[in-house]
């Protein structure tokens, strides 16, 4: 079965008199285990598409099925549970809670998934180990480097065992070296743990890690190609 299936998706924002067509009749299918890079210049509709795919927003028209769930039929508030269990988000600005330790940040999705307290620590630490940050579990974000913060965010995306990881410009705030480390981590999560990874980026060398590239322009998909992904770098802490 398809993990993500959107058909004839449109999104229209009305700014007073003017109507902005952010998405025009977009159809896209993503199977479980894919590593997709969504590319396009700003204003191309890739962010709108990401928001809808991430269940943070609803389209004006069209259909969307995620892991068999009819997303269109649900109210936006009800989508909180879908986000919690199906999707792990990684943002450009890391979006960790300040004054909160790495472990507690990672545990946050489990709080809203009503995971019993005794399993939380265990699973949180396991997720941090997966991203190579076991030693830093007690540190707060301000004590961590950008790359480390982004890895905490990735651990947070993993902890609820969501099948999909959405990464919105995950390397936008990182230097080149750290960017490649983070992308390597995504590659490994995709190949070793069969996570479906969808990365939004405008950098070609970041998109190179993906197995498939989808390009947006003016609210439409203009290119959808399979490519040979760049191999992840050797693991280092």
């Amino acid at each position: 079965m398809e993990l993500i299936e959107i058909k004839n998706l449109s999104k229209v924002y009305s700014l007073g008199e003017v109507e902005v067509h952010a998405l025009r009749d977009v159809s896209l299918t993503i199977k479980s285990g894919e590593f997709v890079a969504i590319m396009g210049p700003s204003g191309s509709g890739k962010s709108t598409c990401m928001n809808i795919l991430g269940c943070l927003d609803k389209p004006t028209s069209g259909s969307y099925h995620l892991d068999g769930i009819d997303i269109i039929a649900k109210n936006l508030p009800d989508l909180a549970a879908v986000r919690n269990q199906k999707i792990g988000f990684v943002f450009q600005g890391f979006n960790l809670l300040s004054r909160t330790t790495a472990l507690e940040n990672v545990e946050l999705p489990m709080v809203y998934n009503k995971v019993p307290q005794e399993h939380m620590h265990e699973r949180g630490l396991a997720a941090l180990k997966q991203v190579g940050l076991s030693e830093r579990s007690g540190h707060v974000p301000s004590q961590l480097s950008g790359g480390q913060q982004q890895r905490v965010a990735i651990a947070r995306a993993l902890v609820n065992d969501a099948p999909i990881i959405f990464a919105d410009e995950p390397t936008g705030n990182l230097d080149t070296k750290t960017s490649h480390e983070v992308m390597s981590l995504f590659s490994r999560l995709n190949s070793d743990f069969q996570k479906t990874v969808i990365v939004i980026t405008h950098e070609e060398d970041i998109a190179a890690y993906a197995k498939r590239v989808v390009r947006f322009l003016d609210g439409r998909i203009v290119e959808d190609k399979i490519q040979t992904p760049k191999m992840p770098e050797a693991e280092h802490a």
């Binding site: 508030p77 909180a80 979006n95 946050l108 809203y112 947070r156």
Partner: peptide
């Protein structure tokens, strides 16, 4: 606001 946004994206419901 940002914290609320993060919590919502991660799966906090209205009531949470």
């Amino acid at each position: 606001t940002r914290e609320i946004g993060i919590r919502m994206a991660i799966g906090a419901s209205l009531w949470d």
